[in-house]
């Protein structure tokens, strides 16, 4: 799979060099969400979600199933009407977004199985045409189809019928369709579900390439590893709220510094939990010296904290899990 090629990058660079008259600081906030609420059949699915995404930023909504990630993204896409709160995507309320607004977005959903009888290139060219009238010197629309097929690694399948593609190839096509209009904002709902590790890495390259072109990317995932690799910023969602927010490093630093020290002495295993691992080790070694073996020190990681959040969330106490996680990470 090729990266977005060099000409395209030069175009993007030239576009950046050409100052955008609309590029004032307020415009820089591509997605603004404040106190977003969603009530559905008597239950609150979203209980006041607020965040902002800036131009060229890759933002991840990370959380267990049922946390409210997909609902949030669907409201931003304009596919769902919210119950309350303020939402702006590219300065427009998605509930009233027109076709011109729509042309500036890219959408990749979880479970598309459409257009099975169409051939890959046929479908991509058909959908590409819609974006032609919205082209500008700064944003060429649509992307050239052949080049895009190369980018997502489907050139060899250009003539294949969509329903003969494997699950991973199908998702690549979905991603290609999502970016064929050269969107300013791209929404991806669980984009790498069903990808093998190589496809996943290729996909990560595509996303980083898009961010270099000033595309804002909002994606959902329940996979922390993916969020860490992709996102400039991670929003952890649980129970309809954002319970933590920051860069991967920032979130990791927020996790309590308790460390687990394991060692063996005279054939017996010991485990000790401490907030001052270095001090504890100094004492341990001073006291027992050479008798200490198999020493292992493990800081509680973001992963540990996240896994326990997911576990509690799925065992039914979403609300409780969200609160505890928020408490823990503070």
């Amino acid at each position: 799979m090729a990266m977005l090629d060099r000409d395209r990058r030069r175009t993007a660079a030239a576009d950046r060099a050409d100052p955008d008259p609309a590029a004032d600081p307020a415009q820089d906030a591509v997605i603004q969400v404040s106190d977003l609420r969603m009530r559905y059949g008597g239950t609150d699915v979203l209980k006041g979600v607020s965040f902002t995404a800036h131009r060229g930023e890759v933002l991840t909504l990370l959380g267990p199933n049922g946390a409210g990630k997909s609902t949030t993204i669907e409201i931003l896409e304009g596919f769902r009407t919210r119950s309350g709160g303020q939402v702006r995507v590219l300065g427009t309320d998605p509930a009233t977004g027109d076709e011109h607004w729509r042309a500036r977005l890219g959408v990749v959903l979880q479970s598309w199985r459409d257009h099975g009888r169409w051939r890959v290139e046929e479908l991509l060219s058909y959908l590409a045409r819609f974006y032609g009238p919205y082209s500008s010197p700064r944003r060429r629309r649509p992307r050239p189809v052949a080049e895009l097929l190369e980018t997502v690694g489907l050139t060899a399948h250009a003539g294949s019928r969509v329903n003969t593609l494997s699950g991973g190839q199908r998702r690549r096509l979905d991603v290609a369709i999502g970016i064929v209009g050269n969107p300013e904002v791209l929404f991806l709902d669980e984009p790498t579900a069903g990808f093998d590790p190589e496809a996943r890495r290729d996909f990560h390259d595509i996303v980083h390439g898009l961010a270099d072109e000033d595309t804002t990317v909002l994606l959902t995932t329940h996979d922390l590893d993916e969020a860490e690799k992709l996102a400039d910023r991670i929003l952890i969602m649980a129970g309809g709220r954002i319970v933590a927010e920051g860069t991967a490093e920032g979130l990791a630093a927020q996790v309590p510094a308790d460390a687990e020290v394991k060692w063996t002495r005279d054939g017996r295993r010991f485990v000790h939990s401490t907030s001052d691992a270095t001090g504890f080790l100094r004492g341990l070694l001073a006291e027992h010296g050479d008798a200490v073996a198999d020493l292992e020190v493990r800081r509680a990681s973001l992963e540990d904290a996240y896994m326990s959040l997911v576990h509690r969330h799925e065992s039914g106490s979403a609300e409780q899990a969200a609160l505890e996680f928020a408490e823990e990470i503070r």
Partner: peptide, 17 residues
């Protein structure tokens, strides 16, 4: 069928789709 498999949603995601 188009509602179930996402054809219609695809149309919604495209300007004038």
């Amino acid at each position: 069928v188009d509602r179930e498999d996402g054809t219609l949603l695809r149309a919604k995601a495209v300007p004038h789709g």
